[in-house]
């Protein structure tokens, strides 16, 4: 008996190509940066305010980048605009995601304005105190939007016949963890490069702990994802493609070895070496990006 492939291919080529794949991979980065810096900013580190500020700028930069990707994919800027302004179908994950991106960019702009004004003001204490409550509420809203954007690719791709792996039980959790991994790795990478900023040591310490914890969660989630795919025959075909088929090199080489094993060793055994932290962070970024790409592409 032949087992039908889980991904039917009613079109000769998948409707979403490399630009959408890059979008799915990169949309996790701003969410991860926001969630990581928000968490770090509440760890009673000496540079908490600076972390929040850098986090807002970093997330804004990454969101601007993925917006450009979307505009290129759609072909014309006004097409991107219509994605934000049309409210006809809020049952479409793409519609909701685009509006969340726009809302997050707007709120980040307000927060950044507050941070920069507070920094430049000669008498910073007063306006900051007045606006602190508003800023704190906005920061919470941004955190919730970031969480939503971290898991939303699972919902987006599960509606497409071309991404059957994104329809699996662990997909949303993997998208969330990889977003957090990307964010934590980007922060560690920045700190390891900028080595001389105040508070580097405690930031590196907190970032390293967070990354190790996330790597452990990631490994366990991948394990159970593969076990969940071992049940039904069409799912086993997907698992086969990942573990022994066309995507095996990327999975074992970039995700498992590069994205988990290498950084785990680097962060556990070379904790004081800034170069090791740098290499580990780059490896985590590559592993998380490859995982998200596999969720997009396996089965096409």
């Amino acid at each position: 008996m032949t087992v039908p492939h889980p991904a039917q291919a009613p079109l000769p080529e998948a409707a979403w190509g490399p630009l959408l794949a890059s979008y799915v991979v990169l949309v996790g980065l701003p969410s991860g940066v926001t969630l990581t810096t928000w968490w770090l900013g509440r760890q009673r580190l000496s540079e908490a305010a600076a972390i929040d500020r850098y986090g807002a700028w970093g997330a804004m930069g990454a969101l601007a980048l993925i917006s450009v990707l979307l505009i290129f994919d759609l072909g014309r800027p006004e097409r991107f605009y219509s994605m934000i302004t049309r409210f006809d179908n809020l049952g479409s994950p793409l519609a909701v995601g685009a509006k969340l991106i726009a809302a997050k960019m707007f709120l980040l702009a307000v927060l950044i304005y507050g941070f920069e004004r507070g920094r430049r003001s000669a008498n910073a204490a007063e306006p900051m105190a007045a606006g602190r409550k508003t800023g704190s509420v906005l920061a919470w809203v941004v955190v919730f939007i970031s969480f939503a954007l971290a898991v939303y690719p699972a919902s987006l791709l599960s509606r497409s016949w071309a991404s059957p792996l994104a329809d699996s039980s662990g997909s949303a959790l993997i998208f969330l963890i990889t977003a957090l991994l990307m964010g934590a790795a980007a922060v560690l990478l920045t700190v390891s490069v900028l080595g001389t900023v105040p508070g580097t040591r405690e930031l590196l310490h907190a970032g390293r702990r967070a990354l190790l914890l996330l790597l452990g969660c990631f490994a366990v989630t991948l394990l159970f994802e593969m076990l969940s795919l071992a049940g039904r025959a069409p799912d086993r075909l997907l698992a086969g493609e990942v573990l022994t088929g066309g995507s095996a090199a990327m999975f074992w080489g970039v995700v498992v070895a590069g994205g988990i094993a290498v950084p785990a060793v680097g962060l556990l055994f070379f904790r004081t070496h800034r170069k090791a932290v740098f290499v580990s962070a780059v490896a985590v970024l590559a592993g998380a990006a490859a995982t998200r790409y596999l969720l997009f592409a396996v089965g096409q």
């Binding site: 009613p10 998948a14 409707a15 979403w16 759609l74 097409r79 994605m83 793409l94 509606r159 016949w161």
Partner: peptide, 11 residues
């Protein structure tokens, strides 16, 4: 707006 979500969804 040519986002191709319909094409990705139509079986």
């Amino acid at each position: 707006n040519l986002n191709r979500a319909c094409m990705s969804a139509c079986p």
